Amino acid sequence: MATSSEDEANHSGVSAEGRSFRFKFSPDEAFPPGSFVTFRQAPDRSALGQVESNSERPAGRAAASGRILGVIDEGGRLDPLASSPFRSAEVAAAGEETIELLHRATGATLEVGSLTTNPDVPARLLPHRFNRHTFCCGQSGSGKTYALGVVLEQLLAHTELPLVIFDPNGDFVRLPNLRADAPGEAAERRKFGLWLLLSTQRPSKVHPSIISQCDNSVLMKMSSPLDLTELGAVFGFAPARCCPGPPASARVRPCSPAGSCRLRALCRSETG
């Protein structure tokens, strides 16, 4: 983790090794866990980061820390593998265009809603990483069925992933009937195997060996202390401050290509 410095001032970020960061800000400003920020190091060079935690500090200051997701070069491209340590860099909230650089760099094209920290920015998942088992959990009424339906619809419309859905409640019987405004041709022409998408409201009832085989994880609203305790290990990748949230919010880890960052996205599937 980046270390603090005497030169670390309000809106000045520090990264000792180019992979993590710290910065201070006023408590009346909003840099919640999950939000994206940029660090301007030079007119033609900056880094993109994601806040993982923040805390109150004396003298009316707050401090945030998180991970660097990549470096933006002078051509406006994001390299998720690059690192660039800095002693002092200007901090600002990342806008839609900058976040889209991350989507393009990692190949995230499946739109499933919007980011809770940036409501005007689409939340996108990586289609080629659904050749892994996926585990989705949340209490009754948290929005699992709707969110899963959005993901399945996107996979049908934009990939060639074969789907076999065990649907005892009949929630997805109309899924083969795509909306009139859905794309007519697949945007992603990839060949997939057959993989499991598991959705449950009682994760404690699922055998641990099944959950351990799921590389992608989605956490909806959970209030059961027992379930939350057991899920602590499953969602150990997610900062604790990112886990609580309102109904219908999903905490998603879409795995990125080998060697690049793993994105912890906080998103909302819109029902309106």
Score class of each variant (00 low, 15 high):
Met1Lys: 14
Ala2Arg: 08
Glu6Arg: 14
Ser20Trp: 08
Ser20Lys: 14
Phe25Ser: 04
Ser26His: 06
Ser26Leu: 12
Val37Asp: 00
Arg40Trp: 06
Ser46Arg: 03
Ala47Trp: 00
Ser65Met: 00
Leu69Ser: 00
Leu69Gly: 01
Asp73Trp: 00
Asp73Asn: 10
Asp79Ile: 05
Pro80Gly: 11
Ala82Gln: 03
Pro85Leu: 04
Arg87Phe: 09
Ser88Met: 05
Ala92Pro: 02
His103Trp: 12
Thr109Asp: 08
Leu110Gln: 01
Leu110Trp: 11
Pro119Val: 10
Pro122Cys: 11
Phe130Val: 13
Thr134His: 15
Cys136Asn: 04
Cys137Asp: 05
Gly138Cys: 03
Ser140Met: 09
Gly143Cys: 01
Ala147Phe: 12
Val150Asp: 05
Ala157Thr: 04
Glu160Cys: 13
Leu161Trp: 02
Pro168Ser: 00
Val173Gln: 15
Arg174Met: 13
Leu175Glu: 08
Pro183Tyr: 08
Ala187Pro: 04
Glu188Ala: 09
Leu194Ser: 14
Leu197Ser: 07
Leu197Lys: 05
Leu198His: 06
Arg202Trp: 04
Ser204Met: 09
Lys205Ala: 15
His207Lys: 14
Cys214Ser: 09
Ser224Glu: 09
Leu226Pro: 06
Val234Trp: 14
Ala238Trp: 02
Gly245Lys: 01
Pro247Tyr: 10
Ser249Val: 10
Ala258Phe: 08
Gly259Pro: 04
Leu266Asp: 10
